[in-house]
Simulated scan of single mutants.
Amino acid sequence: MWTYKSDVLETSVKWFKDSANREDLERLDDLINSRANEGWEFVTHSYMPNVTATRSAILVTFRKEQ
């Protein structure tokens, strides 16, 4: 059995096309490493663009064996 946990990580700006800034990537790495230290395994991520706002977000999902 697995327990799943998802985090929403807001980006600092909207990403156009497939580009991202270094700061956002470092924050994503920090989140993944932080959760790994807590025993969570990275499962998947998904970019959530927000065309009407100045920022978008990344949905990051982790799992941990019960």
Results as ranks from 00 to 15, higher is better:
41 E>M: 06
31 L>K: 06
25 L>Y: 02
57 A>G: 08
21 N>Y: 00
1 M>G: 09
63 R>L: 03
29 D>L: 11
50 N>H: 00
25 L>W: 02
1 M>A: 07
2 W>N: 00
16 F>D: 06
24 D>Y: 00
47 Y>P: 04
46 S>G: 02
50 N>L: 00
24 D>W: 01
47 Y>S: 09
12 S>P: 00
9 L>H: 04
34 S>A: 11
17 K>I: 08
30 D>C: 12
11 T>A: 11
2 W>S: 01
61 T>G: 02
46 S>R: 10
46 S>P: 00
5 K>D: 11
33 N>T: 04
27 R>I: 00
14 K>R: 14
20 A>D: 01
32 I>A: 08
28 L>M: 11
66 Q>G: 08
51 V>Y: 05
17 K>V: 10
37 N>L: 15
38 E>Q: 15
33 N>R: 13
61 T>S: 05
61 T>N: 00
29 D>T: 14
17 K>N: 11
5 K>F: 11
64 K>N: 07
58 I>G: 03
12 S>C: 03
4 Y>A: 11
14 K>Y: 01
62 F>A: 10
58 I>N: 03
59 L>Q: 10
2 W>R: 05
12 S>F: 00
43 V>S: 05
58 I>A: 04
9 L>K: 10
54 T>M: 12
41 E>Y: 08
27 R>S: 03
35 R>N: 11
62 F>C: 08
30 D>S: 15
13 V>M: 12
47 Y>I: 07
46 S>C: 01
46 S>A: 01
36 A>V: 09
4 Y>I: 12
47 Y>A: 09
10 E>Y: 13
7 D>M: 15
11 T>S: 15
38 E>D: 14
55 R>F: 04
4 Y>G: 06
40 W>L: 08
51 V>N: 05
21 N>L: 03
52 T>R: 12
30 D>W: 13
6 S>L: 03
49 P>C: 08
33 N>Y: 07
36 A>F: 07
13 V>S: 14
50 N>K: 01
22 R>A: 07
64 K>M: 08
18 D>I: 09
13 V>D: 14
51 V>W: 01
26 E>M: 15
52 T>V: 08
50 N>R: 01
17 K>L: 09
60 V>Q: 04
48 M>R: 02
31 L>V: 05
4 Y>F: 13
13 V>N: 13
6 S>P: 02
23 E>A: 14
6 S>T: 15
33 N>M: 13
27 R>C: 01
41 E>G: 08
41 E>K: 06
28 L>E: 12
28 L>V: 04
13 V>G: 06
24 D>G: 02
9 L>W: 02
32 I>D: 08
50 N>G: 02
39 G>M: 06
57 A>H: 02
39 G>N: 14
26 E>A: 09
52 T>L: 15
39 G>Q: 12
60 V>N: 08
60 V>M: 08
46 S>T: 10
9 L>R: 14
53 A>H: 13
20 A>W: 03
18 D>E: 08
35 R>C: 14
27 R>K: 09
44 T>F: 02
46 S>K: 13
63 R>Y: 04
55 R>Y: 04
61 T>V: 05
44 T>M: 06
55 R>M: 08
32 I>V: 11
18 D>S: 10
19 S>P: 02
61 T>P: 02
6 S>H: 06
65 E>P: 13
31 L>G: 01
62 F>T: 05
27 R>N: 11
14 K>C: 02
38 E>Y: 07
54 T>G: 10
36 A>H: 15
15 W>H: 07
25 L>D: 00
31 L>N: 07
